[in-house]
Design a protein around this nucleic acid. Structure first.
Lengths: 216, 216
DNA sequence: TAATTTTTTTATACATTGTGTAATAATTTA
DNA sequence: TAAATTATTACACAATGTATAAAAAAATTA
């Protein structure tokens, strides 16, 4: 049945994967050269040597290309971050380590970060990209997976409350992280990014009520 | 200088305000009849009896019309909610009261809620609607103002930590609220809306660390 | 009031997005 | 090789959002 069952994919699948990657590469090159909004889908299609309609078969909107590129990077960084976690003593330090990991990149790529965060917010709620539904939801995204891992561990060890849905909790943290990053992107002089993240983690862990602030 | 300095606005300003309101009314009528995405800016312009370009002068995108309509309602509800707050004993009950206030409307208008929340997220971060920059930021929006009021009060009375920026804190809560509403809009059977909001408020107040969960 | 300046609306044209359709090409399956 | 499936393409289309300059309306000045 399958022509190439050794590598696990046939010629067609391989070609699609290759073209997908080519589109991403071409698009990112154009984004760097001309900026994101100055680059049209027409140009990308032209440069990748496919029909415009074909390009739309692969990516329903321009933002989706940037998103997939960033996700690749993010997953890669997540792998590295995951390795460091074991050495850290508690949930707080693990969360801080995992969250702070990505900011060097964010600081270097503010425009792309904004585009991708906006796209993710939109799609995760309208979910009009059906293919990514299952992946995007929970498994695939780098930071998401790490946060989930940390919280799960914390819940198992009894450090974290177990009466809150893991999924929702992870979303809370990821979303708050996103908000802070965006606030910072808007006006990077108004606060220091990592400092604000630290504060957020403290709030999530201990809350904003003053009478149990130092209860630990 | 001013023709009508008694009412505070000249004929032109009044006409603009009236036209703006007419556009909103016409658009909302069409949205109800045909659905949001099936209604075009062309139709709205036609029905409001202005050129399409004029319509764009007033609202840069279709979502902005829905947003302004909802904001009107929201402000109105906020007024009522604000009155009730004084009778409530602590921050937790005030927050719950303020947040729960709006959900009857949300449950009745899921599509509109989704559209408006998505629009606000996008604009608040890209801030491409310059006019609303100052308003949208903090003052004008109903729920925002209430949450800010509650937190401020809590900080003054010592119930809430004072070492976190009020502005950011309000954004956290508003954003978490938005997330929950959206999760619920996606799949309203997965959890009960108010229940989840209650849980979120508890988390924000007391955090997710298990050893101070019941410290109060 | 009349003449002016400023502001708003408008017609027109344009580049771009995203979709739908149906023909063509490539690939897989039998 | 032939048939069936899947991907690509050309083409047409409705709609968005922007730019420009002319026309209309309103505000300001004399």
């Amino acid at each position: 049945m399958e022509i190439d069952s050794i590598s696990g994919e046939g010629r067609m699948e391989r070609k699609k994967r290759e073209l997908r990657q080519k589109i991403i590469n071409v698009a990112m090159k154009l984004f760097e050269q001309q900026g994101f909004s100055n680059t049209t889908m027409e140009q990308i299609a032209e440069e990748a040597d496919v029909a415009r309609k074909t390009l739309y078969n692969y990516f329903p909107v321009k933002e989706a290309i940037a998103n997939e590129y960033v996700r690749g990077i993010s997953n890669h960084m997540a792998q590295e971050a995951l390795a460091k976690l074991q050495n850290l003593p508690d949930t707080r330090s693990r969360l801080l380590s995992a969250l702070n990991n990505a900011y060097g990149w964010v600081e270097l790529n503010p425009e792309l970060t904004g585009i991708v965060l906006g796209y993710r917010f939109k799609t995760s709620y309208y979910s009009y990209d059906k293919n990514q539904g299952s992946e995007n939801d929970f498994q695939e995204r780098g930071t998401y997976r790490i946060i989930a891992e940390i919280i799960r561990e914390g819940q198992q060890s009894g450090e974290i409350r177990s009466d809150v849905q893991l999924k929702l909790l992870v979303r809370y943290i990821d979303l708050l992280r996103g908000t802070i990053v965006w606030e910072w992107l808007q006006d990077s002089s108004s606060f220091e990014l990592r400092e604000e993240i630290n504060r957020m983690v403290d709030i999530v862990l201990d809350g904003i009520r003053s009478d149990n602030k130092h209860s630990k």
